[in-house]
């Protein structure tokens, strides 16, 4: 089993991206933990060797983006075995994936695509999460997606769908606060009410990132591009999340227009101030 009780030691981490690896290796910045995208390290080549050098100094989180837990077709077993090998090798503190799909008909669409929230989808995702947890021998944290559309036949609100998934599979949740904000702005909805609808004790990690504000035919659309500082509205929502879930391990993600490492670390230190306030307030997660 991967030991999830290391979580209590995790504060605010950063998503480690290729342009920063050499600098992190050389300077070992004061960051609580590092998260990597699983798919970038499945080649067992130089990137994985570099990551193994960092393992001694930083707890790791392995964040999958390609497992496609929401695909109607069977999971890609080759991909799942590669994920299993990676997790055995890295022994991460946290392992997470998404409530989304990206594989159909043997084609990988490089995106976290939206699902209709129906009983059929719930049964499929629950089966895939259960199978994955059995193969990986660890508890998965499932992340809420950022969405640009919803389906007319979706009948279950997203936070309730996630809550039901937790009930059926014993998985945990990765609460992406920016995704909640982006989806609620794009599709209508109250981000605070969304947070209130998530099962408190299931949340094992929080993600924070920036988004872009685009105009589509006169209507504002937020694009979850992880290409900017965290917005003020998302910081406020993060404060709500900490009040509700307690000081849960938090990650800053930055994937496009990747800044200097120092700026990324400064964002993490901003998050730490919120995080420490939550610790001092003794928020333990309200049931």
């Amino acid at each position: 089993m991967v030991h999830m009780n290391m979580n209590s030691k995790l504060g605010v981490g950063i998503g480690l991206r290729a342009p920063h690896v050499a600098e992190v290796l050389a300077t070992r910045p004061a960051i609580s933990w590092l998260e990597v995208h699983a798919e970038n390290y499945m080649g067992e080549g130089a990137p994985l060797v570099a990551l193994e050098r960092l393992r001694a100094d930083y707890p790791l989180s392995v964040h999958g983006v390609g497992l496609s837990l929401g695909s109607a077709e069977a999971l890609d077993n080759r991909h799942l075995s590669r994920l299993q090998r990676l997790i055995t090798r890295l022994q991460p503190a946290l392992v997470s994936e998404h409530l989304s799909w990206s594989m159909a008909g043997g084609v990988y669409l490089n995106h976290l695509l939206p699902l209709p929230y129906t009983e059929e989808t719930l049964a499929i995702v629950a089966q895939h999460v259960t199978h994955t947890q059995e193969v990986l021998q660890c508890r998965l944290l499932i992340e809420n997606p950022s969405s640009y559309l919803r389906f007319a036949h979706s009948v279950i609100p997203e936070p309730e769908f996630l809550g039901e998934l937790v009930q059926r599979t014993g998985c945990g949740l990765l609460c992406d606060v920016n995704n909640i904000y982006v989806s609620c702005c794009n599709l209508g909805g109250d981000p605070v009410a969304y947070l209130e609808a998530l099962p408190v004790r299931a949340v094992g990690e929080i993600h924070l990132a920036g988004h872009a504000v685009n105009d589509a035919d006169g209507q504002m659309i937020l694009i979850d591009d992880h290409g900017a500082p965290v917005s003020d509205a998302v910081w406020t929502l993060y404060d709500h999340a900490l009040a509700r879930f307690g000081p849960v391990p938090t990650l800053i993600e930055w994937d496009t227009n990747i800044p200097e490492l120092a700026l990324l670390c400064a964002e993490a230190h901003t998050a730490e101030r919120f995080f420490q306030r939550a610790e001092e307030a003794g928020y333990a997660g309200v049931a």
Partner: peptide
Amino acid sequence: YPPEAPCLFE
């Protein structure tokens, strides 16, 4: 030739 697997370094 769309990708057939999620590891895009391949």
